[in-house]
């Protein structure tokens, strides 16, 4: 464990807590993409399959349970909670996210480190996580008024993978044979997808204006 990975995990945890806070306290998911939440639930379900077979540390297992629990409960809230589901803008959240799942699965079947069931699904989760934010970014561009909590959620979610990139550089420099091109490229693509959001987020923060993405 290094400071970059810890910062990444804490940023990721913060993003999930901000979203749960928003949904649980103000009982609203306005501006939040259910498609992205469903993709993230699939990402964690396929990434953490080894939770029962391999144990790294209490921290590792605990965080996996938190990410699994929070992502599935957010999907449950947005689909079935009587008050929250009414605030979900179904008409705007129309990204065909299943069109993201299939190519990621095919790519994982083609490019992976080992051709085993767990490894292919784990690689699939890396590819899927890289593009999972797309429905949310599209939704943000459609809904003009982005409330602070949703903006902070996306900002923290984008930031965590950036810390992971620093973690991979650190591990590459300090651990012999730590080379994982698939993880690195997927993580880089994921972070780059946030580039324009980050630009507009900082602009709104600097000029103390409401966050508005260009249509």
């Amino acid at each position: 464990m290094n400071i970059f990975r810890l910062a990444g995990d804490m940023t990721h945890l913060a993003s999930v807590l901000v979203l749960l806070l928003k949904i649980h306290t103000i009982k609203s998911c306005a501006g939040v993409s259910l498609k992205t939440q469903e993709l993230y639930a699939i990402v964690f379900a396929t990434r953490y399959l080894d939770i029962f077979t391999s144990f790294y540390s209490i921290y590792n297992t605990l965080m996996k349970l938190i990410f699994l629990g929070s992502s599935f409960s957010i999907v449950w809230y947005m689909r079935y909670h009587k008050t929250v589901r009414r605030t979900y803008d179904r008409e705007q959240d129309t990204f065909r996210h299943w069109f993201l799942v299939l190519p990621c699965l095919l790519l994982a079947l083609l490019i992976h480190e080992k051709f085993t069931f767990l490894e292919v699904l784990w690689t699939f989760s890396l590819y899927l996580e890289a593009v999972a934010i797309l429905p949310q970014l599209v939704l943000l561009q459609r809904t003009r008024n982005i409330d602070n909590l949703t903006g902070q959620y996306v900002f923290l979610l984008g930031g965590y993978r950036g810390f992971y990139i620093l973690n991979w550089i650190y591990r590459y420099l300090t651990e012999p044979h730590f080379v994982h091109w698939i993880t690195w490229i997927a993580g880089l693509v994921q972070t780059l997808l946030y580039a324009d959001f980050f630009y507009y987020y900082f602009q709104s923060w600097k000029n103390n204006k409401k966050l508005q993405l260009p249509a």
Binding site: D50, Y56, S57, N60, F67, H177, V179, H180, T183
Partner: peptide, 10 residues
């Protein structure tokens, strides 16, 4: 070579 795993990451 034995590549040190990244599976210990979240």
């Amino acid at each position: 070579w034995p590549s040190s795993s990244s599976k210990d990451e979240l």
